[in-house]
Each structure stands twice: as structure tokens, then as C-alpha cells.
């Protein structure tokens, strides 16, 4: 049972959280102006790297806040968590 550090509540058991997929994929400004392919990329396509990945998480059984995290998909280790209004950390 891994611990995930909610930026507000601190470390809590992973079962209190839900996963929200890749972070920093904003809703397009003008969907109507996108081609079908561009729209499909927004709706259906996400990165799937081995290693560091910027993800969205929600402390669903706690404070219900969304936050972002850099997590290593190979080790599951959370390298850092940051609030939605923080910029995406630059990772080496």
C-alpha cells in the first residue's frame, strides 16, 4: 500500500486517491476549429512513457482536490507532487 502525498493533506494511502491520466492536456480553446484528427488526439491519445510522467491525481476520499504529480511509471515512485496552479516542474 503505497503512500501518496496530497499537497494539502500530506501522505495518505493510495486507496484514497483516484487517477486522472496525463497532466497538462488542456481542453482546446476552440474545439470547433480543430480537424477531426486534432480533436481525436485530444480525446483519445495520451503519452505512455516508461519513466517520469506528469499525471493528474485526485484525493478523492480526502479533500477532493486535484493535483499533479511526477511519477516514475517503472518504479511507481512519486518524485514530486504540485498544485494545479504550479508550473510543470522541469525534470532532468
Amino acid at each position: 500500500m503505497q503512500l501518496i502525498a496530497c499537497p494539502w493533506c500530506g501522505p495518505r494511502e493510495e486507496v484514497e486517491f483516484s487517477y486522472g491520466g496525463q497532466a497538462h492536456v488542456p481542453y482546446p480553446d476552440s474545439p470547433a476549429e480543430l480537424s477531426d484528427e486534432e480533436w481525436a488526439h485530444y480525446v483519445f491519445f495520451r503519452d505512455n512513457p516508461k519513466g517520469r510522467f506528469a499525471e493528474r491525481w485526485n484525493h478523492s476520499a480526502g479533500c477532493r482536490r486535484w493535483f499533479n504529480a511526477i511519477r516514475d511509471t517503472a518504479t511507481y515512485r512519486f518524485e514530486r507532487v504540485y498544485r494545479l496552479d504550479d508550473p510543470k516542474p522541469v525534470t532532468p
Binding site: 478523492s60 477532493r64 482536490r65 486535484w66 494545479l84 496552479d85
Partner: peptide, 13 residues
């Protein structure tokens, strides 16, 4: 409710 919160928090703060 989660759906509404998600849009408000992540897209339309």
C-alpha cells in the same frame, strides 16, 4: 459531482 469538480478545478478555475 466529481465530474463538475474536475472541470472547475482543472479547466475553469
Amino acid at each position: 459531482l466529481d465530474w463538475m469538480e474536475e472541470w472547475i478545478q482543472t479547466e475553469w478555475p
